[in-house]
Simulated assay, not measured.
Amino acid sequence: MTDLNTDRLLLRRWRASDLEPWAAMNADPEVREHLGDVLTRERSDASVARFRADFDRRGYGWWAVEVRATGEFIGFAGLDEVDDGLPFTGVEIGWRLARAAWGHGYATEAARAVLAFGFETLALPEILAVTTAGNLRSQAVMRRLGMTTDPADDFDDPDAPEGPLRRNVLFRLAAPRQG
């Protein structure tokens, strides 16, 4: 597995020491506001097991993100195949950070490293991003990354209950042209 480095961050394989802060993030209603219910410790730990298995199988997925200067785990960023049942296919980028890490530019910094990996190493022709219509913070990161959206691509998530998590926005970024 490839680690990704930025000026301030290390995107790396998950460690046992990440499980507790990851569970705390997943139990935080503000972190989960646009994702659904908070997760139990068991469900949180199971998600890390899936992340590890996906990385082993595909060679990419969700990296644990830590601050290089302190070694502090602050969340995740990475790439995943779009879920079945959505009105599009491809590979999507995503991130989730602990509240204490919000507002420092970490999501944008980590996402830029992930985009570079997706385009340069995986040779993806396009990378997608999806969030709820109300998640303006993530949409701002997507715009900073150069991603664009078309209201015609907005969709209702078939797995989300009626309410604020149902309507989603799709952002796209094509691979940079060579030469």
Rank of each mutant, 00 (worst) to 15 (best):
W22R: 08
R167W: 05
V65E: 02
E20M: 09
V130P: 03
T121S: 09
P21E: 06
G163D: 15
R32K: 13
H104E: 12
A111I: 01
L173K: 04
V31A: 09
R166K: 15
P87A: 11
L4T: 01
L115I: 07
V48C: 06
E20N: 13
E33T: 13
R166Y: 09
D84A: 13
A129I: 04
V141H: 00
T6M: 10
E66P: 04
T149Y: 02
A46F: 12
N26K: 15
F73C: 05
R58V: 11
L165F: 13
R13K: 13
I74L: 13
R172L: 01
Q178M: 07
D156G: 09
G105T: 06
R13H: 14
S17L: 11
D153N: 14
E30F: 10
P158W: 02
E126F: 02
A152F: 01
Y106V: 03
L10T: 13
N135M: 05
R41V: 01
T132Y: 05
R57P: 11
V91F: 03
A24T: 09
A113H: 01
D28L: 10
Y60Q: 07
L124R: 03
P164V: 11
V114A: 04
D153E: 12
D156T: 08
D157V: 06
G71L: 15
E92N: 09
D83S: 15
D45G: 10
D150E: 14
A24V: 06
E30M: 14
T6R: 06
H34Q: 10
L11I: 05
L173Q: 06
A53C: 14
A111R: 00
L124F: 08
L39N: 12
L128I: 07
R57M: 15
N26F: 11
R172K: 02
G94Q: 02
I93N: 02
G103S: 15
G103K: 12
T149G: 06
A123R: 15
L173C: 07
L173Y: 01
V31M: 07
A111S: 05
W62I: 13
R166E: 14
E30T: 12
W63K: 02
R43L: 11
S44E: 04
M147I: 01
E42A: 13
A116C: 07
M25K: 09
P87G: 14
A113C: 02
V169E: 00
G179R: 12
S138K: 01
E126Q: 06
A174M: 05
I93W: 00
L145T: 07
G78D: 15
L19Y: 02
M25I: 04
P21S: 06
D84C: 14
Q139H: 04
N168F: 00
D83V: 15
E81N: 14
L79Y: 02
F155V: 03
V48T: 03
S47Y: 06
E92A: 10
Y106R: 00
R12S: 12
F51Y: 08
E33S: 11
E72S: 11
L97G: 07
A101W: 15
E92P: 11
L4W: 06
H34C: 08
A53Y: 11
L136W: 05
V114M: 03
A152C: 07
V38A: 13
Y106L: 05
T121M: 02
A101Q: 12
R41I: 01
L79W: 02
L39C: 10
F88S: 10
A116E: 13
V141Y: 00
F119V: 01
A27Y: 09
E109S: 00
E20I: 08
D156C: 10
